[in-house]
Computed example of a mutant assay.
Amino acid sequence: MKKLKVKIVFLMTLSFLFSGYAQEAQFVSGKKILFEDNFSNDVVGDFPVNWFTNSSGEIANINSNKWLQLSDKGSFLPLNISKLPENFTFEFDVATTPNFNFYSTPLNIVFTEKTTKTDNVWNTVFKRKEAVIFNVHPASTSMATTGSTSISIINEKKEILKNKVIVSNFNKNNSTVHVQVWRQKNRFRMFVDGKKFWDLPTAFQEANYNQIIFFIGTYKNTTDKFFISNLKLAEAGGDTRHKLIETGTFTTNEILFDTKKSTIKPSSKMVLDELGKVLSENQNVKISITGHTDSDGNDTENQKLSEQRAQSVSNYFTTNFGIKKIRITTSGKGESDPISDNDSEEGKKQNRRVEFNIIK
C-alpha cells in the first residue's frame, strides 16, 4: 500500500471518522506477549532501570500496586521494545491525581520509527518522519466532568490528520482507566475501558514503527501527576473481521487441517472465532466458503479434500455460533487455482488456503 500523500491538516467529521461506530468491534488482546511491565521488580522512589527519560519520575505505591509517576516536560519509554509488528495490541493503565487541572497537558502516546541510537525523545515540531500520536486527559474543559482524547498522524514530517473527541469514562470522578490500542497493519483503534473512541483505517503508514514513547508537556499545578502501570505489548491477528465485511472477501492460510484430512487444528480457533463473530453480528450476510489445496497427491483426492475442508469450516460456524446452514455455501477447487508455486514449502503453504466471499 502506498503512503498516504494528503498534505493538508484537517478535522475529520465524526460521521466519517467513526465508520461502523454503531456496531463497534470489541477489543481482542494479542496472544503472543512481546513486552510486559507492572514495575514489580523496581524500587519505590526510583526510576525503573529498564526505562529511559530525559525528565524524571519514580515508582509509586498506590493501593498496593506499583505505578510509574511521570514528571512533566519529558519523554518516557521502555527500552525493551525494539519492534512493533504489523498487527499488535498495546495496553496500559493510566491514573491521575484528584482534581487534575484542565490546563495541564495530556498524557501523549507515540508510535514512531527510531532511526538512531540516541533517538529517544519525542520532539513536537515533527522532526520524526512518521508517527501515530494519541493522548488522554481527564478534563475536556475547565468545567467539564468528562475527559478527552486527541489523535494526530504524521507522514513525511507533516501532520496530515488531527481530531479530538470527548471521553465520558475518564474524568475527575473516574481517574483510573485501562487504555487499549489495536493495530492491524494500517488500521488504528483505541479503546478506554473497552469502549472504542478511534478507528482509523489508514493511520499507520509504510514505516518501520519500532518505538513507543510517552511524553508530557507541563503540569499546571505541582500536585498534578500522571501514573502508568500494567503495560502489555502483544502480537495480534490480522484484520479478519473488517476485511470480510468491508471488502466482501477474505482469504487466509491460518485455518490449518490435519495432513490429508479435513479435521481442523486447534490453532485455527482464533481466526475462525473472529469470522464466526462477524457472521453472528451481521445476520443478513451470506457467504461462500471455498477450499484450496497444494499439488501434493492426485487431482481427484485434492478436489475431494478441498470440498471436505470447506464443509468442516461451515460446520464450525453452525456448531459454535449457531449460524444457519442456509447462509453458507461450500465448494472446493483442489489444486486447480494456485496463487503461488508448488515447488517450495512456502509456496505450498500459500496455496493451502480457505477463501470467504460475501454472496450479493
Rank of each mutant, 00 (worst) to 15 (best):
V43Q: 02
T247N: 01
D294V: 03
N174M: 08
M12L: 01
L305P: 11
Q26M: 09
G45K: 04
A60W: 02
F257I: 12
V271S: 09
K157T: 03
I8Q: 14
N208Q: 10
G20K: 14
I59S: 06
A139E: 02
P138E: 02
V9C: 12
V192H: 09
S344V: 01
G332I: 04
V136G: 05
L233Y: 01
N41F: 10
K114E: 13
R128M: 09
F188P: 02
T97F: 03
T330Y: 06
S168E: 15
N186F: 00
S148M: 15
V132W: 05
S262R: 02
H242I: 00
S19Y: 09
N38Y: 01
K195T: 08
T141V: 11
D337C: 09
I245Y: 07
Q211W: 05
I358Q: 05
K5G: 07
A234W: 00
I255R: 12
R189Q: 13
I255Y: 08
K162L: 11
I59N: 01
K3M: 07
T146I: 12
V271N: 12
K7W: 00
D258T: 13
G217C: 06
D37I: 05
S29W: 03
S280K: 05
E307A: 14
P48E: 00
E307V: 13
K162W: 13
K114S: 09
F197C: 03
I228G: 02
E345L: 15
Q211G: 07
K348T: 03
L77T: 15
L4K: 09
Y209R: 02
I151Y: 03
P338L: 08
Q211N: 08
P266F: 13
G57M: 03
V121H: 09
I255T: 04
K32E: 15
F191K: 07
W182I: 06
I8W: 04
E246P: 02
